[in-house]
Design a protein around this nucleic acid. Structure first.
Length: 238
DNA sequence: TTCCAGCGCG
DNA sequence: CGCGCCGGAA
């Protein structure tokens, strides 16, 4: 079964920039960006990020404000600050044995770095991988990691699986089944999310007076350490 | 509306 | 373990 998957992957793999490197820092950047964010949206931002900060040391030397600006629009902005602190920790002390000691690095991202950058025999389990494992009832080795992700992202979709094009469909007990819909989310237009994003854009372009900015949005950003408030002004961290 | 290579907190 | 976190595009 795994060989069928790998044959399919040989023909259908996605050409993604972070698959062209084994630099642990580059893999770390890609994985943090990819946490709950679509591949197509990450690609250009990943390339720009690495061009600006090619190493942990370069990123560590940047200011939080620069980091937030470079991250702007990707969402989950605290990821950016965590990545920054991780780079500073690595620049100071090197890579820890337990990668989950790094801020913003959990079980999945740690396994991804160990597998994709360090070549260790571990299988990173994201939702796509878990879904394929669950549906097929099969066990796969770490060599199938990228293939499982691509299958889950392009064929074995949660809601509308494309079983007709799946290399594993013949022996898949879940062939044709669909997953339940996930949580619901309100409209973006006019939402608090939109106001918060606008507030961050405003502060990022230049420091503003508190009076010029939506107070609730500023409070939310401040709670996350994305802005500081002083002297009636909101601005990004020094 | 629903999707998205998770993490960290209670 | 459940939940909130982000933003936009399809």
């Amino acid at each position: 079964m795994e060989s069928l998957l790998l044959i399919w992957y040989g023909r259908s793999s996605r050409d993604l920039p972070w698959r062209r490197t084994k630099d642990p820092y580059a893999i770390l950047v890609s994985e943090v960006m990819l946490q709950q964010t679509q591949v197509d949206r990450v690609v250009p931002r990943y390339l720009a990020w690495l061009e600006r900060w090619p190493t942990c040391e370069a990123l560590a030397a940047a200011s939080p404000a620069e980091v937030i600006r470079e991250w702007q629009g990707l969402g989950y902005n605290r990821r950016a600050l965590a990545l920054h602190r991780a780079a500073q920790a690595i620049a100071a002390d090197g890579w820890p044995d337990d990668l989950t000691e790094l801020p913003g690095v959990g079980p999945y991202t740690a396994a991804a770095i160990r597998s994709f950058a360090l070549g260790e025999d571990v299988l990173p389990r994201d939702v796509n991988v878990e879904r394929v494992l669950r549906r097929t009832g099969h066990r796969f080795g770490s060599a199938a990691a990228q293939a499982l992700m691509d299958l889950g992202a392009t064929i074995c979709l949660a809601r509308v699986p494309r079983c007709a094009r799946c290399p594993l469909a013949d022996r898949c007990p879940s062939r044709g089944t669909r997953d339940e819909p996930a949580r619901k989310q309100g409209r973006f237009e006019g939402s608090f999310r939109q106001r918060r994003a606008a507030a961050l854009r405003a502060v990022a372009s230049a420091p503003r007076s508190l009076a010029d900015i939506d107070p609730e949005a500023v409070a939310a950003l401040a709670r996350d350490g994305l802005v500081v408030v002083d002297g009636g002004l909101v601005r990004l961290p020094a």
